[in-house]
């Protein structure tokens, strides 16, 4: 999809105890592969905990949920942790409606795993 690179950016920050990927822009069917590539690259570094920060996304649909579910599955298989930052807006409501917030390690702003 042309221009989809510009629609989604991923900022990566390494800490001693975790690796954080902050997603900015739009996460949908067109940009999901970019996010998946970044998550795969982060998983390859085998951090003790991978944190996906979805709070800065302008748009996210069920593809964002797929991204988190796939990352959770990957972390479970590898015996590592996955945490997410959902904020308190639309993204959080979407995860609530889907009934999966309680099945994820959800971090508040500034909170560390």
């Amino acid at each position: 999809m042309t221009g989809s690179e510009a629609l989604l950016r991923v900022h990566r920050t390494s800490y001693a105890d975790r690796l954080e990927l902050a997603l900015l822009g739009e996460l949908d069917n067109d940009t999901l592969p970019i996010a998946q590539d970044q998550v795969a690259a982060a998983e390859a570094d085998a951090p003790p905990c991978l944190v996906l920060d979805l709070t800065q996304l302008e748009y996210v649909d069920s593809c964002g949920v797929r991204l988190v579910l796939l990352a959770q599955h990957g972390a479970g298989e590898a015996g590592r942790r996955l945490a997410v930052r959902l904020g308190h807006g639309r993204t959080r409501r979407m995860f609530d409606v889907l009934g999966i917030t309680s099945r994820l390690e959800v971090l508040d702003a500034g909170e560390t795993p």
Binding site: S62, V65, R66, L69, L70, Q72, H73, V97, L98
Partner: peptide, 9 residues
């Protein structure tokens, strides 16, 4: 399978 490839609501 266990791929979590797709879900439904």
């Amino acid at each position: 399978g266990d791929t979590r490839a797709r879900f439904a609501t």
